[in-house]
Amino acid sequence: MRLADKDIIEQLQKQILVLQGNHKPGSEQLSVGLGEIETAFPGNVFPRAAVHELISSSAEDASSTNGFISVILGKLMQKNGCCIWISNKRKIFPPALKAFGIDPERILFVDTWKVKDALWTIEEALKCDALTAVVGEISEISFNDSRRLQLAVEKSKVTGFIHRQQPKVINAVACVSRWKISPVASILPGKMPGVGFPRWNVELLKVRNGQTGKWLLQWSPKGLEYISEQISTTKMYERETA
């Protein structure tokens, strides 16, 4: 392949990415600050103007998933911005959000009873470009509905999270990524008793134009830490033998 052809192909690929709703690389798009995970996405940047799908299969997973969403929200919202959290069985306890760097008073919680209302609310919220992010907790979403949400964010550049709790079927949706987060036993340094900082197993099951992956993360007041598999297992081993 000639060098010029390669250039043309790269150029075209970039154009396709933009058409698919990704930001132009190098433009105002800034890194969210998630570290390694961001390398899984095209352009090594966490896509903001996109809808992310997260799936949880139990109440414990749901809590960890919301924790992970809160980490990203905290990074996205920084010191300003506003977020709308839509759910039909809301369990979020606002004071706990402060630990993730979010001011709980900057989040508006919307409770809906009907799935139809929830979808409508999510779509309307995603259309509002004044918001930073929208979190929707629903269990079922059809492909068509997810496409509507995707179209809304492409215009408004709002980040959307669809948290599907115990869905009956895991169908294909038009979201940019699919995540699965589950809690992992925490570890305190040394032989200290008690519960440590939250740890999660973060799986990126699907990602458009990117690389899927799996990470072990720990959230502490210092921020997000990546834990390599070996260290954690050796530590576990030490602990059990001790």
């Binding site: 709308i84 606002p94 709980p104 008073e105 989040i107 508006l108 919680f109 919307v110 409770d111 809906t112 209302d117 409508w120 609310t121 309307e124 919220a125 509002c128 004044a130 918001l131």
Partner: peptide, 17 residues
């Protein structure tokens, strides 16, 4: 946006703490 949501699903569905 909030007005719109309140109009459709009722203002008691929107909470801020």
């Amino acid at each position: 946006l909030i007005d719109k949501l309140a109009g459709k699903i009722g203002s008691n569905a929107i909470h801020r703490y």
